[in-house]
């Protein structure tokens, strides 16, 4: 299988702290990659670079074989790399439909970038997007703060699917979720593979990502300390790496 993302020798400093050290990584198309590591291991730095939020100080990123340089999250999103941040992926007070289309509203009577939203189309498409990820909610007008944690992650994943993302980066998507809700989210992520979406699942909870991952990558102190197929490793081996670095 071909690689969808290739990182070569990425380095990033934050006011003197070497947050990412010569990180190289290959991510295969249509796979689930588990990116694990303790707090401060450099996972967040890596995602921020892949999602375009931050720029690396050195090193290169290749997307589908082409060298890319993201100046903003919008540029990464336009290529099909969508990132779901741990705390801030949805606006709690806004409706499901409005959340799904934030920044990518369907508009008419446009003047430049501005126009009136096609409310009805957005509502219908929102419901369709939810159904596509097997999420059945009452109404697209429900404010997101009335949904459970798992349902919210479902909405975010539905959003990424709707906009035909090729790569979905999930930052701790199962944090603070109950066991039942966690399983729901894991099922969403597993379902992405068959729809041609590559996902990078960031977590410090190995037991969440292990069952659904094809590939696992362990980070510590800004470096990659292990990178292997699931079949070449065991949960005990990974745990050992995580704990002892």
């Amino acid at each position: 299988m071909e690689d969808i993302i290739v990182c070569k020798d990425l380095n990033k400093y934050y006011s003197g702290v070497h947050a990412l050290k010569d990180l190289s990584l290959k991510i295969k198309k249509d796979s689930v990659v588990g990116l694990i590591g303790d707090n401060g291991a450099g996972k967040s730095t890596l995602i921020k670079i892949l999602s375009g939020a931050h720029q690396p100080d050195s090193g290169h990123i290749y997307f589908e074989g082409n060298k890319v340089k993201f100046k903003s999250t919008k540029e990464a999103m336009n290529l099909g790399i969508e990132t779901i941040y741990q705390y801030s992926a949805l606006i709690p007070e806004m409706s499901i439909a409005r959340n799904i289309f934030i920044g990518r509203e369907q508009t008419q009577y446009n003047v430049g970038n501005f126009g009136l939203m096609k409310t009805k189309t957005m509502q219908d498409d929102a419901m369709k997007a939810l159904t596509d990820v097997e999420l059945h909610l009452r109404s697209p007008d429900t404010p997101v703060n009335q949904l459970s944690g798992g349902e919210r992650q479902g909405v975010v994943i539905a959003r990424a699917m709707y906009f035909k993302s090729k790569v979905l980066i999930l930052d701790e998507p199962t944090n603070h979720l109950s066991v039942k809700e966690t399983n729901k989210v894991l099922r969403f992520v597993e379902g992405l593979k068959s729809q041609g979406v590559t996902s990078i699942f960031i977590t410090h909870n190995l037991s969440h990502v292990y069952p659904i991952a094809d590939h696992l990558c362990v980070m510590a102190r800004g470096e990659k300390i292990a990178d292997m197929e699931k079949k070449d490793t065991t949960i005990d081996h990974l745990t050992d790496l995580l704990v002892n670095g």
């Binding site: 999602s51 939020a53 903003s72 999250t73 919008k74 999103m77 990132t83 941040y85 705390y87 801030s88 992926a89 949805l90 606006i91 709690p92 007070e93 806004m94 409005r98 289309f101 934030i102 920044g103 990518r104 509203e105 508009t107 970038n113 501005f114 126009g115 009136l116 939203m117």
Partner: peptide, 20 residues
């Protein structure tokens, strides 16, 4: 759509900017 951006910005600035 501008209205949607205004609500999103006020609702959660980080989430809004992560959505571009």
């Amino acid at each position: 759509n501008v209205g949607n951006w205004i609500y999103a910005t006020g609702g959660d600035t980080n989430a809004a900017s992560s959505m571009g």
